[in-house]
């Protein structure tokens, strides 16, 4: 098992877990919530807005500009 395989497997597992949580949240299964609901809760506070803005900007800079 190569390091490449381990790293990619880790990312795929985490993304699959996120997808599963999203689907369970959309299906209304407790205690899961869709990611958008969590973000909306974060956006309801001023601090949460700035944190999400900073995270969004970092993602754009990291993947699209660097």
């Amino acid at each position: 098992m190569t390091a490449y395989f381990v790293i990619v497997l880790g990312f795929v597992t985490l993304l699959a877990a996120m997808l599963a949580m999203e689907l369970l949240g959309r299906a209304g299964r407790e205690p899961f919530s869709p990611f958008a609901r969590v973000l909306e809760a974060a956006l309801a506070s001023r601090t949460g807005r700035w944190v999400l803005w900073a995270a969004w900007l970092w993602i754009g800079f990291h993947f699209l500009a660097r």
Binding site: E30, P31, R37, A41
Partner: peptide
């Protein structure tokens, strides 16, 4: 969202 779902995310 419940606290548990927040923590999970």
């Amino acid at each position: 969202p419940s606290r548990r779902s927040l923590l999970l995310w």
